[in-house]
């Protein structure tokens, strides 16, 4: 005999007939549920712990120097007790922007080719190959950049080679698979009827891509780019090896540059006392930037959903 409890979904139904067994099972279920719930809290508690520990260690120095002077100070000189992270913020931003300028067009073009133009089987295979790029460890990227790209830049320009340019080229290659992969998925999510509509109107494949498919996949592509920005800001080892690491605001593509992450990694090994706290202060700044980026992602995602709803009538008119 089975019965259904009032108002509970079907999986809450007690299906067993024996009352004792059923009660034991319900108790078991409750324990299981509680244990699973505790496991599920790991991620969010880890996030809380990370925030708490990084801030607890970093805030004292921010307070001592003053948040404004810490963030906007242009001199980073631990030996003189001067801690201004603006050069590193500028470095991170410069390297990220340059990497996106180079990486995004190639990555999106690659995604369009794989999703829309290549034969389906070849597209899947080539996408897997492009994604292999994301498996390459960042130290390997850094090292290959250090031994090939840096000397190349040195030879061409006469500058030392360790530069914004070197770091951003390496980063551009590193974030490409991320952006390509996310863009590919969002292109694949565009219904085939959109393309059929354009074809029925006598449009070419390129017209379909340019005027219908790309606009429809836009929010997904933007999400991929934001993910790429996060990667760029957070990447440490590869940048550390090719950027030159001078804590000065970069003035050209050939200036050596130090990012927030590489600044921390460089000095963490030997820093102590106030210096170490200042490095954790740097981590607080990085953390805040990443958090802001996360909020932006959420905003874009919510906006994407709205666009998805609005797009349909427009497609209807295009297909009619």
């Amino acid at each position: 005999m089975s019965y259904r409890k009032e108002g509970s979904p079907f999986w809450r139904t007690t299906v067993s007939s024996g009352r004792v067994r059923s009660q034991g099972r319900t108790a078991n279920e409750r324990v299981v549920e509680r244990v699973l719930f505790c496991c599920a809290l790991t991620a969010v508690s880890a996030l809380a712990l990370i925030t708490a520990f990084i801030f607890a260690e970093g805030m004292p120095e921010l307070g001592r120097t003053g948040p404004a002077r810490f963030v906007f100070g242009t001199t980073w000189s631990p030996s003189r007790g001067m801690f201004g992270v603006l050069p590193m913020i500028a470095g991170s931003v410069a390297v990220t922007l340059a990497a996106l300028l180079m990486g995004v067009p190639v990555a999106v073009a690659c995604a369009v080719f794989l999703a829309e133009m290549a034969p389906p089987r070849a597209g899947v295979l080539l996408k897997a190959l492009v994604e292999l790029l994301s498996a390459v460890p960042s130290v390997v990227y850094g090292f290959v950049g250090l031994t090939t790209l840096v000397p190349l830049i040195r030879e061409w320009t006469g500058a030392p080679g360790f530069s914004v340019l070197a770091a951003s080229v390496v980063l551009a290659i590193m974030v490409m698979p991320t952006i390509t992969s996310v863009s590919y998925e969002s292109l694949k999510a565009v219904p085939g009827s959109y393309r059929d509509g354009v074809a029925a109107l006598g449009g070419t494949r390129w017209q379909a891509i340019r005027m219908v498919v790309l606009p429809a996949a836009r929010s997904g592509i933007v999400a991929g780019i934001i993910l790429g920005i996060g990667r760029c800001l957070g990447e440490t080892m590869a940048v550390l090896m090719v950027a030159g690491n001078a804590p000065v605001i970069p003035t050209s593509l050939l200036s050596p540059v130090r990012t927030l992450t590489s600044g921390i990694a460089l000095e963490m090994g030997y820093a102590s006392g106030r210096h170490r706290e200042a490095l954790f202060g740097t981590a607080v700044v990085l953390f805040a930037m990443i958090a802001a980026l996360n909020l932006l992602t959420r905003y874009v995602a919510s906006k994407g959903a709205v666009f998805g709803g609005r797009r349909r009538p427009r497609d209807g008119s295009a297909g009619a």
Partner: peptide, 19 residues
Amino acid sequence: IRFGAESLAGVPSIIFGLF
């Protein structure tokens, strides 16, 4: 829970290292 997991995914590895 989902917010925690998604945010954790965006945390740079060096922050994990420091933590």
